[in-house]
Every structure is written in C-alpha cells, then in structure tokens.
Write a protein that binds this DNA or RNA. Structure first.
Lengths: 175, 175
DNA sequence: ACATTTTGTTGTTTATAACAACAATTGCCA
DNA sequence: TGGCAATTGTTGTTATAAACAACAAAATGT
C-alpha cells in the first residue's frame, strides 16, 4: 500500500541513498511492548525539543515543589526582580506571555504577597510591578532550588552539552 | 543559598557587583517598552527550550495549516506508518503520550479516515493501528510540508546548528 | 475636541498533562 | 482449573496553557 519512500529526503543537496529499511516487525515475542521505530521523528527538531521540554519542566516542578513555584511563575518573579517597576505590558512582551494570561499569573503571586501592583507614576493605565520584601526573600530560596534543578540537567546531558545547548537555543529567545 | 558562582545570583538586594552595564536605561524615549533584562532566565535551559518549542510549534502549525495537522497528530501518523499494526499501548509508550489522550487523537484521525483501528489477531483487548490508503497518501504530502518546516528551522538556527541540536537533544528522547 | 491606540481585565475556545475509574480481556499461579 | 491480578482501551475530571475577542479607562495624535 503506502509506497511513499520511507523517511524524509533530507532536502535538496543530497539524495540520501538509504533504501531497504523495513520497519522491523517485531514478530518475536508477541509482547508488543518492543519499542516502536521512531526514526521518522528523531530527525525533527520539534519532536526532540518537545520531549526535552517535558522532561525539564517535570524536573523543575518536582524540584521546586516545596516552594510551589512553576516555571512561568519563576520567570515572572525573576524578571520583576531584575526590572523593578516594569509594566505588565513590557513583562508580557519580554516573556512572550499574553497580556491576558499574565493577569492571572500576577493575581496568584500577588495573593501570596510575593508581588505588588503599584500605581504607575507616569501612566495611570499601567501598573508598576515590584517584588515585596517577602517576595524577595522567597526568590532567594527559589533561585537556590532552581540551581539545583539546573544541576539535574547538567547530570542528564553533561555539563558542556548543557552549555552548548544554552548557546544554540539563544537564537529563539530574541525574536 | 549555596554557592552558584557561575550563574548570577541577582536577587533582591541591589548590588549587582559584576554588571558594568545596567540594562539599558531607556534614556531616549521615556517609553518603558524597552526590552527588559532577561539575564536571570537565559541561563536556564528550561526557559530557552520553552521559547524554542513555542517558536517551532507555531511554525509547524502554520506550515502544515493547509493539511490541518498538528505536531501530535504528525507524530502519531509517522509512527503508525513506520510500525503498522502496533497497539495503542505501545504507541502511547513510544511517544510518551498518555493512553487516555491517544484515544482522542486517534478518534480524530480515524474520523478523517487516515487511520484504522483493526481488531488485533492475538489479543482481543487491543487494536492494531494501520494507516488507510488515504492516510498514506495524505502522509506523503504531510511529510513534504514537514520538511518545509524543517527548512524554516535550518534558516533560523543555521544548518549545522540544527544538526548539533538534534544530536544534543537526543538524550531526552530515550528516557 | 475627537478619533485612535494602549493597558489591564474578563471571558471563551481549544489543546494538553495528569489522574481516576471502569469493563473486557488476558496472564498468572496456587 | 478456577480465581485473582494485571493490561488495554475508554470515559471522565481537573488543571494548565495558548489564542482570541471584547471592553473600560487612560493616553496619544491630529
């Protein structure tokens, strides 16, 4: 039936000369739990990135469970700490989080008294975001746990590989 | 808080001893829309990966909009194509998708007659998953568009960088 | 002065992750 | 062999998240 040639043609420059690669029908054990062939996917950056992101976020959430901080909350606290007084709009732009979603995130952090929305002196539409003293203290502990998480990552991928990844992925953070 | 000297501490007290360049105080326009300082985040692999994943998925969805296929659907079709007859359970394990979620994904693909759930010969509990002829034809076109998407990626990160990323991220795909 | 834009907010829709419970079936084992 | 535990697909719930749309208040442009 489906006769489209197996696997991607990896683009123009070079026709991959790969042929004869039947997908391993695991005829053996009747136990179908043999791992399936994922060749078609592991050539896709999106697939690998997705798997990596899930792994990383799970570890982050687990590692910071004691302080009950999730990745998005961490990014908000960190950016407010580094840019006290910024508005929700600029925070939204900086993190690529929608204005609407940020409202809910800040509501949660404000309810825990980690963050304050103060009236902006220059623009009465906007709020100036600040960490409270309590938020600052909490963030110190939170950052320590985040470093612990980063340590787990280094163990998983290797220290130098982690740094290479940081370098290679930086292009996505800007645009 | 423990050591971490290689990643900046950057907590609430103000010092920032090492930073000679303050985050671009927008001396010019007075408009606070200048980009915020993200130093504390760009040292976190999780943050960069998240941004990268969002960018990549958006491009994937946009590029494959004409065939109305999302990343998860693409992965399902690809793995069924490479492993005809596999069960939902092994597909679930291979992709790291929950059994429950896979049901819904397959419902959608079966409604479009891309996929068939056939009764398994050996185990009446499970289904043998197959692409239909229609599904196979569709997948050929789908894969062509997926390659186009991958081309966008290569343009964004560079061809060699993309391959490095594939290699570095492979560790997450297994465990 | 008026029209337009920006900012924060509320709401809806859709996709996804993580669980729990269930019926049908299979495998285990005493 | 008969009964019990595990597996498989399914349904359902809860929580998070992205993407929009619409709105009022305030700012901006002309």
């Amino acid at each position: 039936m489906t006769n489209h040639d197996r696997l991607e043609t990896q683009s123009h420059p070079r026709p991959t000369r790969r042929r004869q690669r039947l997908p391993h029908n695991n005829s053996t054990t009747s136990k179908a739990s043999q791992l399936a062939d994922l060749d078609g996917l592991t050539a896709h950056l999106g697939y690998l990135i997705r798997r990596a992101q899930i792994w990383i976020f799970q570890d982050f959430i687990r590692t910071l469970a004691t302080v009950n901080i999730r990745p998005a909350q961490y990014s908000v606290l960190t950016v407010i700490d580094a840019n006290p007084g910024l508005t929700q709009m600029s925070l939204s732009k900086a993190l690529g989080i929608e204005r609407a979603r940020l409202v809910h995130l800040l509501d949660g952090l404000e309810a825990r008294r980690f963050v304050e929305r103060r009236p902006s002196a220059s623009d009465r539409r906007s709020h100036a975001l600040h960490l409270t003293a309590r938020g600052g203290t909490a963030l110190t502990a939170i950052k320590a746990l985040a470093q612990e998480h980063e340590q787990h990552l280094a163990e998983r991928v290797g220290r130098k590989n982690r740094q290479q990844l940081l370098r290679l992925l930086a292009v996505f953070a800007s645009g």
